[in-house]
Every structure is written in C-alpha cells, then in structure tokens.
Lab assay of single mutants.
Amino acid sequence: GSSGLPPGWQSYLSPQGRRYYVNTTTNETTWERPSSS
C-alpha cells in the first residue's frame, strides 16, 4: 500500500487514539512520522 512511510515502518493507533510509528526491523517506536530520507 501507499502509506508514504519508509520501508520497515508501520503506523498504529494507541489506545488513546494517538498515531505512532513502529520500525518492524529495529522495534523502534516513535510519535514522530519517520522520514524516508
């Protein structure tokens, strides 16, 4: 899909309704949208 996220990243919603991002390669999580640069 065209999520616009860098490879390996997925976006999720927290129980509070906030969006966060997870790097499935490194298990890093961040509130900031990852850049593909």
Rank of each mutant, 00 (worst) to 15 (best):
P6T: 04
S11T: 12
S37Y: 11
R18Y: 09
W31M: 06
T25N: 11
T24K: 09
R19Y: 12
Q10E: 14
G17M: 03
T25R: 12
N27S: 09
S11H: 04
S37W: 13
E32M: 09
Y20D: 00
P34L: 02
P6I: 05
P34T: 01
G8K: 04
Y20W: 06
N27E: 06
S37K: 11
R33V: 09
E28L: 06
N27I: 02
E32Q: 11
P7R: 08
T24V: 11
L13F: 08
T26R: 03
T29F: 15
T30R: 10
S35M: 14
T26G: 02
W9F: 03
R18V: 14
Q16H: 10
N27V: 02
G8D: 07
N27G: 15
S14T: 15
S35E: 12
T24F: 09
G8S: 05
Y20A: 02
G8V: 03
T24D: 07
V22D: 00
S11Q: 10
S2K: 09
E32S: 08
N23G: 00
E32V: 13
S2P: 13
S36N: 12
T25Y: 15
G1M: 11
Y20T: 02
T25V: 15
E28I: 07
T24A: 10
R19D: 04
G1F: 09
S37N: 13
W9V: 01
S35P: 13
P15W: 05
Y21T: 00
G8A: 04
E28P: 00
S3Y: 15
Y21W: 11
P15F: 06
L13Q: 05
Q10T: 14
G17V: 00
G8E: 07
R18E: 12
N27P: 03
S14E: 04
S14F: 01
T30N: 03
S2G: 13
N27R: 10
N23H: 06
T24P: 08
S36I: 13
S35Y: 11
S14Y: 01
S37F: 12
Q10R: 15
T24S: 10
Q16A: 13
L5S: 03
Y21L: 00
L5Q: 02
S11G: 06
E28V: 07
S35H: 11
Q10W: 08
Q16Y: 08
P34C: 01
Y20H: 01
S36Q: 11
G1I: 13
P15E: 08
P7E: 11
T24Q: 10
L5A: 04
L5G: 02
P7Y: 09
T30G: 02
G17R: 03
S2F: 10
S11V: 12
S35W: 10
T26F: 02
P6L: 06
L5T: 04
R19K: 08
T25E: 14
E32A: 07
G4C: 15
L13D: 05
T29P: 03
S11R: 04
P6N: 03
G1R: 08
T29W: 15
V22A: 04
S11I: 09
T25G: 07
S14P: 01
G8F: 07
N23F: 06
T29M: 15
T25A: 14
Y12A: 08
V22W: 08
S35A: 12
W9R: 00
Y20R: 02
L5E: 14
S11L: 07
N27D: 07
P6A: 05
P6K: 03
P7Q: 08
G17H: 02
S14V: 03
W9M: 01
Y12I: 06
Q10K: 15
Q10C: 15
E28K: 06
S35T: 15
L5V: 04
P34S: 02
E32K: 11
R19W: 15
R33C: 11
T30W: 07
R18G: 07
W31R: 04
G1C: 15
P34D: 01
P34N: 02
W31A: 05
S36G: 13
S3H: 14
G17A: 02
E28W: 05
S3W: 15
S35I: 13
R19E: 10
S36K: 09
Y21P: 00
P34Q: 01
W31G: 03
S14N: 12
E28Y: 06
W31V: 05
G17P: 00
R33H: 12
Y21H: 00
P15T: 07
S14K: 01
S11W: 09
S3F: 15
S11F: 06
Y12D: 03
S37P: 14
S37M: 12
L13M: 10
S2R: 09
L13N: 04
S3N: 13
R18K: 11
Y12Q: 05
G1V: 12
N23I: 01
R33P: 10
E32L: 11
Q16T: 15
E28T: 07
E28C: 12
S11M: 15
Q16L: 11
R18T: 10
L13G: 01
L13R: 06
Q10S: 09
Q16V: 06
L5K: 02
R18M: 09
R18L: 10
G4Y: 10
S3D: 14
P34F: 02
S2D: 14
Q10M: 14
G1D: 14
G8Q: 06
S3M: 14
